[in-house]
Computed example of a mutant assay.
Amino acid sequence: MTTSLTLNNGVELPAIGLGVFQTPPEETVAAVAAALRTGYRHIDTAAAYGNEREVGQGIRESGVARSEIFIETKIWISDYGYDETLHAFDKSAGKLGVEQIDLLILHQALPSAFARTVGAYKALEKLLADGKVRAIGVSNFMPEHLTQLLEQTEVVPSVNQIELHPYFQQKELQALHAEHGILTQAWSPIGGITSYGQSARRSFDEPVILTIGEKYGRSAAQVMLRWHIQNGIQVIPKSTKPERIAENFDVFDFELTADEVAQIDALDTGVRGGPEPDSITLENYGMPIPEA
């Protein structure tokens, strides 16, 4: 059973990691330590989450060697631009308490200031060349953003981390990833975002998923994570509850049939839960990222 994926530069990434988006700093240390003790070896954070310091503390408290752990974080748009992004690496590494970051990505495209986005990515290329990071990538980039980036830079992103769950599958974007050897990484992989706001459908209540789950004695979350893994997508479910963290990791000992995968593939509504990528501007979303 595949438990890791190989990035386009040969670096291996675990198939499943722990996400800490919106995890309060005071809960992050325990969640990270619990995940690592459970068997997770990939932690995904971001400068904008405000919990990089606690991720680093959780890693140290877990007792798992740093060399065994894959750390991913993201540069926020306020730190875009070549020199700014080089400094943003120092801020993140300092908070995490590490010298090298395994995967460093740009958190969003900044369509209204794309030259700054390109400058930021060129800084990632420099950090990669200098061995300060092992792989680089992007997040929430749409096809037009990726195409522009590829035209103006040298290193093809290793990943694009995007909203992806049974109700929102971004198949056109996934096809572009496949064409360029970019790994699709799913945030909100079990559709947690469908439980907030005005959403009429919660992925956890989806009859198709619940029926498949009953067959295998698995939760809706486990079925969705298994579906991603079988589709070659890397997942970063988030939870702060040790029992849920463990449940989300327990997806490597059963397999969905091709028909079951197709049934979940057919649930796509095309409705995004997160912000529209083109709405991301410094005016709307800019915020200072504190020093280390």
Rank of each mutant, 00 (worst) to 15 (best):
Q22C: 08
A115C: 05
A135E: 02
G19P: 06
P143H: 13
Y121P: 00
I105E: 00
L104C: 10
G213K: 14
L7M: 03
V159Y: 06
S67M: 08
L128D: 10
V98W: 00
S199I: 05
A113C: 05
H165S: 01
A30D: 15
A221E: 06
H165A: 06
L176A: 02
T38D: 14
K171Q: 12
V159Q: 05
I264E: 03
S4H: 14
A292T: 05
N51K: 10
Q100I: 13
V261A: 07
W76P: 04
Y82I: 05
S219A: 04
K122C: 04
I280R: 00
W76F: 04
T184F: 07
L173D: 00
V251P: 07
A221V: 03
A120T: 03
D278Q: 13
S239P: 09
T28D: 09
I71Y: 01
G17N: 04
R37F: 11
Y49L: 05
E26C: 10
V64I: 15
E151M: 12
Y40M: 01
H165Q: 09
I77T: 13
T240M: 14
D268W: 09
T6I: 15
E276P: 06
P143S: 10
G232H: 12
A135K: 05
A46Y: 07
D79V: 01
L127D: 01
A15H: 09
P166G: 05
E72W: 12
I236G: 02
I77F: 03
Q185P: 07
V208N: 02
E52L: 09
T184W: 04
D130C: 04
E54Q: 14
K171A: 11
K91W: 07
V251K: 05
R218T: 06
P143V: 13
W227S: 11
N160V: 05
E247R: 11
L176M: 14
G97V: 10
P14W: 04
P24W: 15
A34T: 10
F204D: 07
N160H: 13
A93K: 02
L13S: 07
R60D: 08
S78C: 08
N284K: 15
V11D: 14
F114E: 02
A221F: 03
A65Q: 13
T38K: 09
V32C: 00
H228M: 12
E283R: 13
S188Y: 05
P290K: 14
T2S: 14
V133Q: 01
I162F: 10
V156G: 10
T23R: 02
L127G: 00
E151V: 06
A65Y: 08
K241L: 13
Q230I: 11
I233T: 07
A120P: 01
K215G: 06
